[in-house]
Design a protein around this nucleic acid. Structure first.
Lengths: 322, 322
DNA sequence: AAGTCGAATGACAACGTTGTCATTTACAAA
DNA sequence: TTTGTAAATGACAACGTTGTCATTCGACTT
């Protein structure tokens, strides 16, 4: 900046003004400075500026598992951030640490961030006792409430409950559930919603089956459920498993939706399977990311627990019980 | 830091030493300082440190389109960065600018980065004339060579060529191609590889069909190809379209692989379709990301053009022509 | 006990910005 | 021409670190 000032024959303070408040400097001077900046390839030094301003205009994002669903969350956060002129500083979780949140916060604390978002897909050891570093607001993407931090999450439980209610409304009485891995929070909450709806209707909940998110594991589960003649409807914890189950049901001679109705989660099949009939629950991750970002910047001391509702996309895979 | 020094009864320079070169300070002093830091919740100031060191230990990533395939690239870059103690600063492309690369570089130049990576899925207007800001090395993820910047890319052309050769080796003579959207670089290069292999073998290339990456568009293409009785093999530009095409072929009474062999790209179906038989070409995006990161840090002035090979995963969907 | 030497610590400048306040300039009015 | 006033510019400090060099400390040698 001092070089630019010399080149343009002004003081370096004037250069600073051209960069930050161009209206306060005479057009002639301004042009001279701009040309000098152009010639010298001047870029304002982020470190010096942040040091002086005491803020980074960037927020930290810790992604503990980088997989498909997180991409749209990342997208939502990135969009909201861009709108406000913020950048995103990203770090991956570092492996299986003892205290994941504290460790991540410690690392983030060393980086240029004004706040941070943790995207949590599983429960972690130090969730309850975690506390934000002073001056660095933390927002956690998780269905649980936290003692001091705001949390944002898809309303898995509510959406699952609504979907299950819909099946009950269609006359189904034996609705079974295909769960995901036991360490998945999403799976846990979807299962809870399913149970809740059944309880409300006074229906019994048969033991859920367990898959690993893959279509193959869904096929296995479907093959077992095909034996259960009373079962006329299935809620599967994601679309891949639902797709596998549909295949297994068809292979076993039980037709979807004539004999069995089925609903999945995530609405992820539309692109990969032609003319899919699978009904599914879709979440607005874009919105979730944007809400999380808003919450980080929120200056107030209040913490919130925010749930983003899901929507049931009805396709041909469900119909009234015959 | 000066507060910590006061609290511990030492000079602030000693605190700095405890942080950066703990071995040079006496254990007793060190403990006192550490305790003081703990009590005060001290975090080293990133801006001040970077200002003094003249480096940020972070590299910028510009993602022009945030979709599935980019996730694993992001993952690869993030892993490589984490290994070297680097963070990632992420910005999304800002919309449809006139000069996407220059604009992105200008914005990145204001952020705490020591270099940057552009992840390009389409051609952009200012690709050829783009020049890195002085002191900020740029690496571009694209199949094209650039005049001054290193580029890294999947070897789409080579992989498509190898896959097509494999089909020829199996005795197929009429191998057709389902392309993606015309602005996709990946699609263009896959098509080129297909043509190359056919040329080498002295075979004619029938007009490619065009889809939009979706299974539904693949189904349409498959329905048309089912009419072409001479066609015994298909190369589809991604697995979703390949899956749609397989369905259409089956629906039209042409069995896969008995009547028609088919190969897709990206190996993306294994999770979502049970017991899939689709053969596919898989790319190691993790590796691609890691290579791109290495290239940014490379201090030498040489620029490279790096191609990451793909691998053909053979499943039941291909067999010798009967 | 004095001298020696390496280890531990401290004082001070510097990194490149922005904020504060003082000074200069330009222009209009008298 | 002189004066008054607002606009434009400049001088200097400060942000919180790390590097350089000087100083102090402690233990060992003779």
């Amino acid at each position: 900046m001092v070089d630019v000032a010399h080149e343009a024959g002004v003081s370096f303070k004037t250069v600073s003004r051209v960069v930050n408040e161009p209206d306060t400097v005479r057009p002639a001077t301004r042009n001279a400075v701009n040309e000098a900046m152009e010639r010298l390839g001047f870029r304002t030094n982020y470190a010096a500026r942040s040091l002086k301003l005491g803020a980074y205009k960037s927020i930290g994002l810790v992604i503990f598992d980088l997989f498909g669903g997180n991409l749209s969350v990342l997208n939502g956060i990135a969009s909201a951030a861009a709108d406000q002129g913020y950048a995103i500083t990203l770090i991956k979780r570092m492996g299986k640490e003892e205290l994941p949140l504290s460790e991540a916060a410690r690392r983030m604390g060393q980086l240029p961030v004004d706040g941070m978002i943790f995207n949590l897909a599983q429960m972690v050891d130090d969730f309850a006792e975690y506390r934000s570093p002073v001056g660095l607001r933390t927002v956690i993407i998780t269905p649980f409430e936290h003692a001091t931090c705001s949390t944002v999450s898809d309303d898995q439980e509510g959406a699952a409950r609504a979907a299950c209610r819909r099946l009950i409304e269609l006359g189904h009485r034996h609705i079974r559930f295909i769960a995901g891995p036991s360490d998945s929070l999403a799976s846990k909450n979807r299962e809870r919603g399913w149970r809740l709806a059944l309880d409300e209707a006074g229906l019994a909940a048969a033991d859920p089956l367990h898959g690993d998110w893959s279509a193959d594991s869904g096929y296995e589960a479907g093959a077992i459920l095909a034996q259960d003649q009373k079962c006329t409807a299935i809620l599967a914890c994601n679309d891949n498993m639902a797709n596998g189950a549909m295949q297994a049901l068809n292979d076993a001679g039980r037709r979807v939706p004539d004999d069995v109705s089925i609903i999945g989660f995530d609405d992820s099949l539309a692109d990969s399977v032609p003319h899919t009939i699978l009904s599914s629950i879709r979440f607005d991750h874009q919105k979730l990311g944007a809400r999380a970002f808003e919450e980080v910047l929120d200056a107030s001391d209040e913490k919130h627990r925010i749930l983003i509702p899901g929507a049931l996309i009805e396709r041909g895979s469900i119909r009234p019980r015959s």
